[in-house]
């Protein structure tokens, strides 16, 4: 899949797919991307919290405040969590 075009379009293509959100404190949230907004606040469904490669918690829905995000991994099928 092409990663060209602007960043929001890549994020839009990832809607309803599994993504991994990496935060600045290195905690990761893996789950289905329900939606995002202008501040890159993110809504994930059926998500797990991953700290140092360990799944430490799971949640139904989570809201992640955009300023904490380091990057979002899309097309994660080929990459380990």
């Amino acid at each position: 899949m092409s990663m060209s075009s602007i960043p929001v379009n890549s994020l839009r293509k990832a809607l309803n797919k599994q993504v991994i959100i990496r935060l600045k404190d290195n905690v990761r949230y893996k789950g289905k991307l329900v939606s995002f907004d202008q501040n890159m606040n993110v809504w994930l469904r059926e998500s797990t919290e991953i700290i140092e490669d360990e799944e430490v918690a799971s949640y139904g829905d989570i809201f992640v405040r955009g300023n904490n995000i380091l990057f979002v991994q899309v097309n994660i099928e080929d990459y380990p969590a």
Partner: peptide
């Protein structure tokens, strides 16, 4: 500004 994640 302290909030990272909120889950109902």
């Amino acid at each position: 500004d302290n909030v990272i994640m909120v889950s109902p």
